[in-house]
Write a protein that binds this DNA or RNA. Structure first.
Lengths: 409, 409
DNA sequence: CGCTCCTGTCCACCCGCACAACAAATCAGT
DNA sequence: ACTGATTTGTTGTGCGGGTGGACAGGAGCG
């Protein structure tokens, strides 16, 4: 039973098959490698049913069977056949658009980054220039793909507000973009027509950490991203919190200090003016041209200054508001907050404990990203893969095979 | 496709039937009255399937068929038979525990309040005393129930933090309760054993407004409740946002003015210290013993004072943080905010527009509760009814019949 | 070398929904 | 008032999909 998050629809058995097939694939994807027996117990279905589903995945070229592991013994009984992702199976292109560089990766099911490439992005570059650069990187990583493997889609992580209905980039302050249809630009530059999904970098960080990072199995998770601006991605009930337009999680403009500095949003003392990259850069006297690499600058510190510790306290106090609002189980600190937390973790913890309500405080823990700085990239891969888990057959139907030849032509 | 919000499970056709039966009932409940043709188009199932589901509901005693309406013509073709809630069908008890009074209602499917009773609650009363009073009210409203009608459960709205795993009231500041198992107390006073669900009043307000109030069809909705303290209930993606413990939505302690007044939570200048009942009472020089009836006091004003207008601005500015965080489509102002918004709506709107980001602001609208002050009561009924929509057969299995006789015994 | 335990495969079976054909009920036009 | 078009209720048949049992395969244990 799963669900139509969209409400009110009935279910027929065709939908069952779709859902079960997708769920099997989701499990294989999540674990990278499983056994049919494990799938049976995880999904609560009959052995025969699982066998049928797995064999369908194999005939679709998505999964492969493998001989049981030699070494590991897991008790008596016939060892269960392994199920793993097919070697030449479907893949996606993940793009992490940063403020100073773009990372592009070819990612297979199971979250394997098969190949990656990156290039600097000019500050205040035009969107079409960036799109062309990204398209070149995409061509590079597709180069190595087996021609039989289908390309399912492209996922793009954007440091800004993305409208969920059509993927339009409404506002990316640090790229100075307004209302840019970046997905269309990249597709045009490539000359391809595949599904493109765009989303906010913090949302994708949350998704990735939930799937294969520090928050596996945690259905109430928040990823707070320090990435010049400050944003958050929220997973609640195991699903992304999006809001009507897709703009949910804009925590950077929480009211923090009404007497504080002016924020580019027009208000005074938003949280971002205290813990944003420019605020931190000022606190550590970092030159403005290195703000985009603030994490590396911070990593060179070994002892925090007083100003930096105050920033840590502000981070914790702001997190308290977030914890009070969402009551999460895990808060993952991404972007340069990762480096910051390593330096002034105690102050962050103290600030949080000082301002959060007892009830939500007792069940929350702060964590560093399990995927390092690659969380948004992995999240971009996840949204591009998502159609496969909803309906594998349909997703493969819209996928492109022999992409290299199409790119050449 | 439907649902398991809990992830990873497979679906079999037994689950299909459960889900479809529950979904049919949910539609009948939502509309109060429908036709089979409408159900067919809403659920996307075949006519014959709908017929089977409806007849099963009828044989369960939940639904009745009725002759098509005489007057209304809806085009050519055979008129579709009406489906409505059975007259002696299942019902629930809804309890709205306020800080100064308790309201108890017998509510049938369709959200019909069949009978209601209320009584004042002593301030700083012991939990068992309140429980006994509530039990008496429950006996009163059950008195009039047909003995054939099954009691499905009891839903209780609580002005405080409720742990979702077991319904324990962790903290109800205005009742001065800590860790009270109020559900158990009421059941013991009744001598019954039926399912009891407890939840926060704002969460239930959101649920009710989503189901049959100002937010029907709106899947991104927030109910902000002014009820001595300030809290919010969030519906996102059509589901309640709960958080791990069930404490999500504690917006009263958002940082608002760090130089402000001390809050009972230990911090300075929480939003609640600016727009909470005590702050407003002070602004309008309302005597402290009437704070619990602040809405009535406010209703007697016809022109807002300057202080009240400032409060309205603060309300709007705080809502801006909420709008930025959740990007809702509708924000419903419940509790005494209802009265306040009638007086100083323009200031609230201005405060919101001033502080919210453009993107979330353009898609949000403020509304008054469609259910007046009964939102939490209706929400309490909804959570008690919820099991019926998940699995009608199972829910009727645990329901109590002939409750009057059991109460007497 | 048994025995036991677990898993894969194959089969018949059941359950639930779809579909087609027919009947019923209403509206529109003549 | 009659006729055709339209829409819905009813019924029987068919199909898809998961279940469950019987049997075989493979491993550990004594």
């Amino acid at each position: 039973m799963s669900p139509q998050r969209r409400s009110g629809l009935g279910t027929n058995q065709e939908a069952i098959r779709r859902h079960n097939l997708g769920t099997v694939l989701r499990h294989v994807h999540g674990a990278g490698q499983t056994s049919r027996a494990e799938l049976t117990s995880l999904m609560g279905l009959n052995r025969s049913t699982i066998a049928g589903l797995v064999s369908e995945l194999e005939s679709l070229g998505i999964a492969e069977h493998a001989t049981p592991l030699e070494g590991s013994r897991q008790g008596a009984g016939r060892p269960s056949a392994r199920v793993r992702i097919a070697r030449e199976g479907p893949y996606v292109i993940a793009v992490d658009l940063g403020v100073d560089r773009a990372v592009v990766a070819r990612v297979g099911l199971g979250g394997h980054v098969i190949q990656r490439a990156q290039a600097p992005v000019l500050r205040d570059g035009e969107a079409w220039q960036v799109g062309a650069a990204v398209a070149t990187l995409i061509r590079t990583v597709i180069e190595g793909a087996p021609s039989a493997a289908p390309l399912v889609g492209i996922g793009i992580s954007v440091p800004g507000l993305v409208r969920r209905s059509d993927g339009l980039i409404r506002l990316a302050p640090n790229l100075e973009w307004h209302d840019v249809s970046f997905g269309g630009i990249v597709l045009a530059a490539l000359g391809l027509d595949v599904p493109v999904s765009l989303a906010n970098d913090a949302d994708l960080g949350a998704l990735a950490e939930h799937t294969r990072g520090a928050g596996v199995g945690v259905d109430e998770l928040i990823y707070v991203s320090g990435n010049v601006g400050v944003g958050a991605g929220v997973i609640s009930g195991g699903h992304r919190l999006e809001g009507v337009g897709g703009y949910a999680g804009e925590v950077g403009h929480l009211r923090f200090n009404p007497d504080g500095r002016p924020c580019h949003c027009g208000n005074l003392g938003c949280w971002e003016t205290e813990v944003g990259a420019f605020a931190i850069a000022e606190a550590i006297q970092c030159p403005p041209d290195k703000v985009a690499q603030l994490d590396e600058v911070l990593d060179e510190f070994d002892r925090p200054s007083t100003a930096l510790r105050a920033t840590g306290t502000s981070l914790g106090q702001g997190l308290a508001s977030i914890v009070n609002m969402f009551n999460p189980q895990v808060v993952v600190l991404g972007g340069y907050f990762r480096s910051l937390y390593r330096l002034v973790g105690a102050d962050v913890d103290a600030g949080l404990a000082d301002r959060a309500l007892p009830a939500p405080l007792e069940s929350v823990r702060l964590e560093l990203p399990g995927l390092g700085s690659d969380s948004p990239l992995h999240g971009a891969a996840e949204i591009a893969l998502e159609p496969l888990f909803v309906d594998p057959v349909a997703a493969l139907g819209t996928a492109l095979v022999d992409v290299r030849a199409r790119l050449a032509g």
